[in-house]
Amino acid sequence: MLAPERRNQIMQILNENKQLLVKDISIELNVSEGTLRNDLKILEEDGLLERTHGGAVLPKPTTSENTFHSRSLANQAEKKMIGKAALPFVQNGQCIILDASSTSLELAKLLINYDYLTVVTNGLATAQELTRNPHINVIVIGGVLRPGSSSLEGLLGKGLLSQIHADVFFTSAHGFTTTAGLADFSIYEAELKKLMVNNVNKVVALLDHSKLNRRSIATFAEVNQISTLITDQSADKDFLNSLEGIEIVIAD
């Protein structure tokens, strides 16, 4: 079993049981306790769990409002520039999908003067922002509101998404690597985003420099599924040069 798949399973077990013991999970996954402890260390560094004596637990929950607010403030200037740089990829009359990220929210704020757009989103804050423009038809994908988030996730919106064929999907991610592509820490949100990727003509990744070459748990878009990457001037140039077949836009 590859390490990303194993860590994905660890997070599935942890989300279901709220805690885990190294000795039990090492047997269940058929790996050594040393390997499992290393996995837990990496997952803790990514903020996905908290290690305890002999195991791990989920991070202490915070309120949805405070978490989304603090996330939106991280690299805020870069996110605003990335949102502005994404505008040329939006045309009147299109159907686009915006994920629930704080970067997509910055793009949503700039759509106030667009006409006859249909915007599909699983972001509550994004949907509320878009209602400021009466010429935008807003479709909210139903799902489960995850603690510590402003997004609706899960596959309750699968039927709706199967009927929508959008022009562009604008999405951020918890991490992006050349091996795993775009990935999120929430398995359930990643599954929803996979459906979005499969129902669009173009995927545009909105990633500030902190997301590049960063690991996460669940892949929702392979590198060859990404048409364009919009990032900021602090992005690692060597990493950008390693990407093949992707249009790179540096926001300024």
Rank of each mutant, 00 (worst) to 15 (best):
V119L: 14
Y188W: 02
A127Q: 04
G175N: 00
Y116L: 13
D167V: 01
F68K: 06
L98F: 15
I250G: 10
F239L: 12
D252M: 11
L20P: 00
E45P: 12
A56W: 12
P59V: 06
L124M: 13
Q19C: 04
D115G: 03
L73Y: 03
P134K: 07
I13V: 05
N224S: 15
E33Q: 04
G154W: 01
A221K: 02
F169C: 03
K237W: 07
Q91C: 13
S151Q: 13
E247V: 03
N198F: 07
L207I: 01
T171A: 11
A183Y: 01
T228F: 05
I139G: 11
S104T: 11
G93K: 03
I187T: 01
V204E: 04
K158P: 01
S242Q: 14
T231H: 10
E65L: 14
I112K: 15
K202D: 05
E65S: 13
G159Q: 09
N30K: 14
A190H: 05
E28V: 01
C95D: 06
I96H: 03
A125F: 04
I96Q: 03
L145A: 15
E65P: 02
S172M: 04
G47K: 10
D236P: 12
E45L: 14
L206N: 14
Q76E: 14
L49W: 02
A183S: 15
A183W: 02
N66S: 14
M1K: 10
D232G: 09
V204W: 04
L117W: 04
L40G: 05
S104R: 00
T178D: 06
T231I: 10
D115H: 11
K193A: 04
M196Y: 00
L155H: 00
G245Q: 11
N198Q: 15
L161F: 08
I13K: 02
A86L: 02
S234Y: 12
A183C: 15
T231R: 12
A3E: 06
E28S: 00
T62I: 13
I42H: 13
P59T: 09
V140C: 07
L14R: 02
E16M: 09
N66V: 10
Q9W: 11
V57F: 07
S216E: 12
I217D: 09
G245S: 12
L160T: 09
K79P: 00
L111Q: 03
I112L: 15
